[in-house]
């Protein structure tokens, strides 16, 4: 299982801040997780498809689409940051 977190506008659009997800053997990286969620359609596709502004972190470090993801990892999706 992996833990997936959603923040800010993304959380509001998707209606959830976190979920536990079973990781299929074929899913090995952030792009794979993204595709899994996009396949849900609707808001998930709207918010998370490649090319959209949703950024990702794996185990609390900024990640790219090719960042590896393995069982037990924590992945977060969020809009571009606006701190400071």
């Amino acid at each position: 299982m992996i833990t997936v977190l959603y923040f800010a506008r993304l959380r509001e659009a998707l209606g959830t801040g976190s979920e536990a997800l079973a990781l299929p053997a074929a899913v090995r990286d952030v792009e794979g997780v993204r595709a899994l969620l996009v396949a849900r359609g609707g808001e998930w596709e709207q918010a998370l498809a490649s090319g959209k502004a949703a950024r990702a972190a794996v185990n609390q470090a900024m990640a790219h689409d090719d960042t590896p993801v393995t069982d037990g990892d924590e992945i977060a999706f969020f809009p571009p940051v606006t701190g400071g």
Binding site: A8, T82, G83
Partner: peptide, 10 residues
Amino acid sequence: LKTRAPFWKQ
């Protein structure tokens, strides 16, 4: 910090 620290303002 403005471009990499995970904060979001509303």
